[in-house]
Computed example of a mutant assay.
Amino acid sequence: MGVDNNSISVSLEKLERFIAAALRRAGLPEADAATVAGLMAQADLQGSDGHGIIRLPQYIRRIRSGGINVRPDIRVVADMPGMAIVDGDNGMGHLVVSRATELAIDKARTQGAAWVGTRRSNHAGPASLYSAMPLRHDMVGIYFAVGNANHLPPWGGTDMLLSTNPISVGVPAGDEPPVVLDMATTVAAYGKVKAKAKRGEMMPEGWMIDREGRPLLDPTRSDEGFLMPIGGHKGYGLALIVGLLAGTLNGAAMGRDVVDFNKDHVTPTNTGQAMLVLNLAAFGPVGGFKEAVDRLVGDLRGSARMPGTDRIWIPGEQSHARRQRYRETGIPVSRGVAAELDQLARELEIPPLA
């Protein structure tokens, strides 16, 4: 395990073991703890550090406060050949969304396309974890979610009625890495704000403004303002649509009903997510599609660049590169997060991470 001035480096396996041990101690069955730990560690492995192990103390607080059901009865409550709704029974979001994604993949095998929504779920980590799952089956994954706290007002307003409401799309390729877009409908996801605060860093201008419209740069003062939508009013509109599809359509929380799980550790969040899976085989030869994606990726990457641009990146390429690098060098965990995890380990009476 290597160290530098601002972080320690931890192997993927050690990260998974620590998370699983903490979740088991908090009451999750062994298999469920392993599933959640694997997905959380994958978030850190790809560089989505605002959604990985940094969230563990928060999850444990909610579990201990009764805000999450550690033994949920995750079940299908609406079912047709090309769609379903999964009721998560207030279980860990990673378990609920994994179940919904697996069901969508299974349905898409015979139907060509399938939409599965969730209700009574919880925070499930970065969206790309789930849009990437269908890739292994030569399928496209499109994921929508309602964020777990409202940090976005309607365009021109100041009342927090919308969240970061992410969307992620995973598209298979051939020799190239898959194209995986993972974006919040705000300029930055709130998890990145939390990560900046943990590292003692300032936010770039453009992430947040205060209620007077002035730039807000200190992440520890995030309650004094709100996140900015991407593309101005267009991002506001997109956040609304994603919330309607992932939340309202499934009978999950949206708008004023969204529970801020950063502050409220007791109230069930009734989080909604949705997964759309498209089976490539239903559209034509799979190999031909992948070859076309590879050609397009090559054209984009090899296209003329602006002065000062070293490389044109494809969505998902940098995460792919981090996975490869971090598997060799270890996953960086900021010292502030590591100290909090050490405290959590003492409370749970489990071996420390570092």
Rank of each mutant, 00 (worst) to 15 (best):
M1K: 05
D4Q: 04
N5Q: 15
S7R: 13
I8H: 06
S9R: 13
S9E: 05
E16A: 03
E16W: 02
F18P: 00
L28F: 12
E30H: 11
D32R: 02
V36D: 02
A37N: 08
A37K: 02
L39C: 03
Q42A: 08
Q42L: 10
D44E: 14
D44G: 07
D49G: 01
H51I: 06
H51C: 06
H51R: 00
I53S: 01
R55E: 02
P57Q: 09
R61N: 10
R62Q: 12
R71G: 13
P72F: 06
P72C: 10
V77L: 07
A78C: 04
D87M: 09
D89M: 06
D89E: 09
N90D: 14
N90Q: 02
G91Q: 06
M92Q: 14
G93R: 10
S98H: 04
A104V: 03
D106E: 12
A108K: 04
R109K: 14
R109A: 13
R109L: 13
Q111Y: 09
A113R: 10
A113E: 12
A113M: 14
A114P: 05
W115Y: 15
V116P: 01
T118N: 02
A124D: 07
S128Y: 08
L129V: 05
M139R: 10
M139D: 09
I142S: 01
Y143R: 01
A145V: 11
G147T: 00
G147K: 05
P153I: 14
W155S: 05
T158L: 11
T158W: 09
M160K: 15
M160P: 14
S163E: 08
I167W: 05
S168F: 03
P177V: 06
P177G: 04
P178C: 13
P178I: 13
V187P: 00
V187M: 05
Y190N: 07
K192C: 03
A195T: 04
A197T: 07
G200S: 04
E201L: 15
P204H: 04
W207V: 15
D210G: 13
D210K: 09
D210R: 06
R214I: 06
L217Q: 12
P219E: 01
E224M: 12
G225Q: 03
F226P: 07
L227Q: 05
P229N: 10
I230Q: 01
A239I: 07
I241L: 15
I241T: 15
A246I: 08
T248R: 11
L249C: 01
L249K: 00
N250L: 01
N250E: 01
G251F: 12
A252Y: 05
G255D: 07
R256G: 06
D257G: 02
D257Q: 15
F261P: 00
D264R: 05
H265R: 07
T267R: 14
T271Q: 10
V277M: 04
N279V: 13
L280Q: 08
A282T: 11
G284L: 12
G288L: 11
F289P: 12
V293F: 13
V293Y: 13
D294V: 06
R295T: 12
S303C: 03
S303T: 08
M306Y: 00
P307V: 03
A321Y: 06
Q324S: 15
Q324W: 11
T329L: 13
T329S: 14
T329P: 00
P332K: 09
V333N: 04
S334C: 15
G336W: 04
A338W: 08
A338H: 01
E340A: 01
L341G: 00
D342S: 14
R346G: 15
E347D: 15
L348M: 00
P352S: 08
P352K: 11
P352V: 11
